[in-house]
C-alpha cells in the first residue's frame, strides 16, 4: 500500500511531530483532558481520511491547529459540555520564584480571547497567521489580543492577590 505523505512527512511523523501542538490546542479549547483526547484523535483521523495537500510544514501545522479548534467547537456543541478548569488546574507545573504559570488564568478567558492568546503566545504565530487560522480579519485579531491581555492581567492580578 502506498504511504500517504503530508508535506513530505508520513502520517506517523506528522503525529509524532505535531501531537503536542494539537493536544495543547484541544486542551486549551475544551479545558478537559478526556475531551481533548477525543478531539485529538478526531483531528488526526480527519487528516488521514481527508488527506489534503500541503504546501509546506507550516501549512500543515496551521491546518492541524485550525482543524483542532473547529473539532473542539463541534465537540463541545454536540456534547453540550461546560468548560472546566480542572484539567489545567490539577496539573500545574511547578513554578519557580521567577516564573509563574498562568495557564489557569488563560482558561478563564472567553474562548475567542483564549484562542487568540494561545496561538500568539504559545504557538508563536503572527497576527496575520492567527487571522488565517481563525478566519478573522487581522485587525480583529489585534483587538482580541489586546483585550485578551487586559482580561488576563485582570484575572491574574485578582487571583494572585
Amino acid at each position: 500500500m502506498k504511504q500517504k505523505l503530508y508535506a513530505g512527512l508520513s502520517f506517523d511523523q506528522v503525529v509524532q511531530k505535531y501531537a503536542k501542538n494539537v493536544l495543547s490546542s484541544c486542551l486549551m479549547r475544551t479545558g478537559s483532558s478526556p475531551d481533548a483526547d477525543d478531539c485529538f484523535q478526531n483531528v488526526f483521523l480527519k487528516l488521514y481520511t481527508v488527506a489534503p495537500s500541503f504546501r509546506d510544514e507550516e501549512h500543515l501545522k496551521a491546518w492541524l491547529l485550525r482543524v483542532a479548534i473547529n473539532e473542539c467547537k463541534n465537540y463541545l456543541r454536540d456534547n453540550r459540555r461546560h468548560l472546566t478548569l480542572d484539567a489545567v488546574r490539577e496539573s500545574p507545573l511547578p513554578s519557580t520564584d521567577d516564573e509563574r504559570d498562568i495557564s489557569w488564568a488563560l482558561m478563564r478567558l472567553e474562548p475567542k480571547y483564549r484562542e487568540a492568546l494561545y496561538l500568539y503566545y504559545i504557538e508563536r504565530y503572527k497576527v496575520a497567521e492567527i487571522a488565517s487560522i481563525l478566519g478573522y480579519n487581522p485587525n480583529t485579531v489585534k483587538t482580541l489580543l489586546s483585550r485578551g491581555r487586559q482580561k488576563l492581567k485582570k484575572i491574574y492580578g485578582g487571583e494572585s492577590k
Partner: peptide
Amino acid sequence: KKVNFNTFQN
C-alpha cells in the same frame, strides 16, 4: 516575576 504558559507549552 515572569509569566509563562508552561501547562500548555510543556
